[in-house]
């Protein structure tokens, strides 16, 4: 069996009702668990970006990406290994303020991790950290040990590719041909106007 590893899938899509469902069905059908999923705007006006993290084989991820791209409301989909992207997650930690005030251990930990304090009330303090998943988890473990974490949540992964722009050039070329346009502008927010 081919080795499983972490892949980040990105998909550039229209903002259509039900598309999230159509995309997740592709994973469900193949019994692939989604580790994290984020939907956001992209650099292209009106185009949404899905960022999905899965742990699977390259063979599977390739097939999944092809199936995603086949959806009529998806413009383009890619998969990347971790070294091809810059990626981050964000976590929030809620601690008892009492814990923070007793000794300087918690303060020390917060400093070491370059975490931010977002809000302090007499009873609770909320801390934020952005980083790699393992960094977020490490901070959780240390804080939990020091004073007990009351609430914890982390976001899905967000990622940008190491290439300069959103890589949709192929797609735009194919569309231009479909439309019988000769001029192919480089992809920018504006070029999408003539495509609608």
């Amino acid at each position: 069996m081919e080795q499983k590893q972490e892949y980040t899938i990105t998909a550039f899509t229209e903002n259509a009702v039900g598309l999230l469902n159509r995309i997740t069905i592709i994973f469900t059908r193949r019994h692939i668990n989604i580790e994290s999923l984020t939907v956001s705007a992209s650099a292209l006006q009106g185009i949404h970006k899905f960022t999905i993290v899965v742990n699977t084989t390259e063979d599977q991820v390739q097939k999944v990406v092809n199936q995603i791209e086949k959806l009529v409301e998806v413009l383009k989909s890619f998969y990347h290994t971790n070294d091809e992207i810059v990626h981050q997650e964000l976590a929030l930690y809620k601690l008892p303020t009492k814990g923070l005030l007793e000794g300087n251990q918690v303060e020390q930990i917060v400093r070491e991790h370059a975490a931010r304090i977002l809000e302090v009330t007499p009873s609770f303090t909320t801390i934020e950290l952005t980083g790699y998943k393992h960094e977020l988890v490490l901070l959780f473990e240390r804080l939990d040990k020091a004073c007990g974490v009351l609430q914890y949540t982390s976001s899905g992964r967000i990622a940008v590719h190491r290439a300069k722009q959103e890589v949709l050039t192929d797609h735009v070329e194919a569309l231009a041909k479909l439309k019988g346009e000769n001029k192919i502008d480089k992809v920018s927010g504006k070029t999408w106007d003539w495509l609608t």
Partner: peptide, 11 residues
Amino acid sequence: SFFRSYIPAPI
């Protein structure tokens, strides 16, 4: 005969 997210056949 056209919408931007759908390319019926690859070139």
